[in-house]
């Protein structure tokens, strides 16, 4: 057990014992290799199951809405921004949340490791960090890969690996490998396409959407009690998984989360049919920054981007 892990368990236990939190939301070891799974508990006996490792993928802030009472929550940089964003949208009260900040040096993208090694994740023996290299063990043999080749795309463009908003910080920020060019390489490809090519690209991608709504369900910014997709009077889009409706669903969702999305990457990671959703959400984030110099979830006292208006704001489209 690492020192950070021990510290986390001590802090979590103290929170429960002192009644500063009714629930702890953290990660425990998953049931498959290289996974963790959310641990949501009010039971002190569960606390020694909490872990911190390179596979703490989930953005746990999505569970805060389910909790009645105070929650102590383990948060990476992007997760803490989601929490702040939820506070801005008045979905949470700051005093109901104890943020246990985990400085993050990026999470490993198992899809990338699979591509690099030609093996499925369950066929690998081990994945570990050695400095800025990831060491993958396959059938006893070790292979090294530069961090930037195995980190999630969203981690490669992360500016805030340590939570800015926290109550407890478990550790100092570790080394962070960034490669913004690489992080947005697919967006660049899309930008270089003609509108017709882009249309074909997305038509093809959304043709395989099965409407499982995992992208929406794992997204902390999707906090609507009833999604527009499920409205029936009027019915905005068809519940049938036709590519046109799939595309409208995702476009509308992206606009709804603009200014709230912290590029945590959960939508894309969860998609069982590999639709590159981050190419949309990241682009939206870039546009929000470019037009309004706005970064989601960085100031809990600021009004939400889409709920505020200033007369000097860019309005190129209305002139």
């Amino acid at each position: 057990m690492s020192e950070t892990e021990q510290k986390l368990r001590n802090e979590a236990m103290t929170l429960l014992e002192q009644g500063r939190a009714d629930y702890i939301i953290g990660y425990e070891a998953g049931s498959l290799k290289f996974t963790t799974t959310p641990l949501i508990t009010r039971d002190k006996d569960d606390i020694d199951r909490l872990v911190i490792n390179p596979f703490i993928l989930n953005n746990l802030s999505v569970f805060l809405g389910d909790i009645s009472g105070k929650a102590g929550i383990v948060a990476k940089g992007c997760d803490s921004r989601s929490i702040v964003s939820l506070i801005q949208d008045q979905q949470l009260a700051r005093e109901d949340i104890v943020i246990i900040g985990v400085p993050c040096s990026g999470v490993i993208d198992l899809n990338k490791v699979e591509k690099l090694t030609g093996k499925d994740r369950d066929e690998l023996d081990d994945i570990a960090w050695a400095g800025d290299k990831a060491v993958v063990t396959i059938e006893g043999a070790k292979k090294e890969f530069p961090a930037k080749d195995v980190l999630m795309d969203d981690c490669l463009s992360c500016d805030m690996p340590a939570p800015q908003e926290y109550d407890i910080l478990l550790d100092e920020v570790g080394p962070l490998v960034c490669d913004k060019e690489l992080s947005r390489s697919q967006i660049k490809e899309l930008e270089e396409m003609s509108p017709e090519q882009r249309w074909e690209f997305w038509k093809n991608e959304f043709s395989r959407c099965i409407r499982c709504y995992a992208c929406r369900q794992v997204c902390p910014a999707c906090f609507c009690k009833r999604c527009f997709v499920e409205e029936t009077e009027p019915q905005w889009i068809s519940p049938l998984p036709k590519w046109q409706d799939n595309l409208i669903f995702q476009m509308t969702r992206m606009i709804h989360v603009a200014g709230r999305c912290t590029d945590c990457g959960e939508c894309q990671r969860s998609c069982p049919v590999n639709i590159p959703l981050r190419s949309l959400s990241k682009k939206m984030e870039e546009i929000a920054d470019e037009l309004f110099q706005y970064k989601a979830g960085t100031d809990k006292d600021a009004p939400p981007l889409m709920a505020a208006y200033e007369s000097e704001e860019a309005e190129d489209f209305i002139r």
Partner: peptide, 9 residues
């Protein structure tokens, strides 16, 4: 059920 996100996967 606590950690289920109610998706359809």
């Amino acid at each position: 059920a606590a950690k289920c996100v109610s998706c359809g996967i």
